[in-house]
């Protein structure tokens, strides 16, 4: 399968990329290509101009700035898995990257590309939502930073304007106890249900901070903010957790498709939330 005929331009600097993008309204950015190539081949997308941002050096950087890590859009899943800075400062992100697709895709696929594809069952987004990540978007006119929660609009839709490029992801350092679960039929598949959670407890067992997000359960990954507020500031019992989970899952509207019916997806979500939030809150193996 060939993509439709297109013109390819390689940008060496951001300014060059902005100028290529401004030449053509129909232009799309290509990073690692592991999301857009399948779309081009299936002709779901058929831009007449493809602007490759891979040569732009600043997009490959991982750096600390105060209490935050800034990861360039072109950083690959493999580089996230191998980064010492990420391992020691946001281990949860590294754990998430380990389960993306397969070795070959992880060698090419990028953080920025995956976020911009905005697949509702993508691996990174639940994790990045609980980490309160923000994304930086640059264009010839300037730059803006938005929370990932605002950036994700719907299925395969993000708040990016023509001419803008997602250049980096900003993530506050977080070493809290976490859980990342991807439930898929086969390991390299997209998730049928997924969750990411962080929990901070006081020494007496009171939950001081809990953040939970689920993937593949709606038109975009979601933070479960009601569940979070119900369990914060208390020493929850198993019953409290189960009730909060059931209430949260009740409100989800996952798709019904060949990978799993809506009911099945909700059932799996309920089970993985109860088991894994249980382990984080009550400690040990309370599954």
């Amino acid at each position: 399968m060939y993509p439709k005929p297109l013109t390819y331009r390689r940008a060496r600097t951001l300014d060059e990329a902005f100028s290529f993008l401004s030449e053509n309204e129909d232009a799309r950015v290509i990073a690692g290509g592991q999301s857009i190539m399948p779309m081009l081949k299936l002709r779901i997308a058929s831009p007449s101009l493809l602007v490759d941002i891979a040569p732009i050096r600043e997009l490959h950087e991982i750096r600390m700035e105060g209490n935050e890590i800034i990861i360039g859009a072109m950083v690959t899943h493999r580089e996230i898995i191998e980064s010492r800075e990420i391992k020691s400062n946001i281990p949860m992100l590294q754990e998430t990257a380990r389960h993306i697709a397969d070795v070959q895709i992880r060698n090419r696929g990028t953080l920025g590309g995956s976020i911009c594809e905005a697949d509702p069952s993508a691996d990174y987004t639940p994790t990045l939502l609980v980490l309160d990540a923000r994304v930086t978007l640059k264009s010839a006119k300037g730059e803006r930073t938005v929370s990932l929660d605002d950036f994700l609009v719907g299925p395969f839709e993000v708040d990016i304007k023509q001419g803008e490029i997602l250049t980096s992801v900003i993530i506050p350092v977080n070493r809290s106890a976490y859980s990342v679960v991807k439930y898929a039929r086969r390991a390299a598949d997209f998730a049928v249900a997924s969750m990411a959670a962080l929990v901070e407890k006081k020494t007496d067992g009171t939950v001081s901070d809990i953040r939970v997000a689920v993937g593949a359960q709606s038109d975009r990954p979601l933070r479960l903010r009601d569940l979070e507020s119900e369990l914060t500031g208390i020493k929850p019992q198993k019953r409290d957790l189960h009730l909060a989970v059931e209430k949260a899952v009740e409100g989800l509207e996952p798709i019904d498709d060949i990978h799993g019916s809506a009911d099945y997806r909700k059932e799996v979500t309920s089970n993985i939330l109860k088991a894994n939030l249980g382990s984080l809150i009550f400690g040990g193996d309370s599954k």
Partner: peptide
Amino acid sequence: TVLLNDRPVKSCQILAVQVD
């Protein structure tokens, strides 16, 4: 699967111009 700069990649997911 082929090796690109010693790392395995799927050559049906890459444009030849990308690896010039």
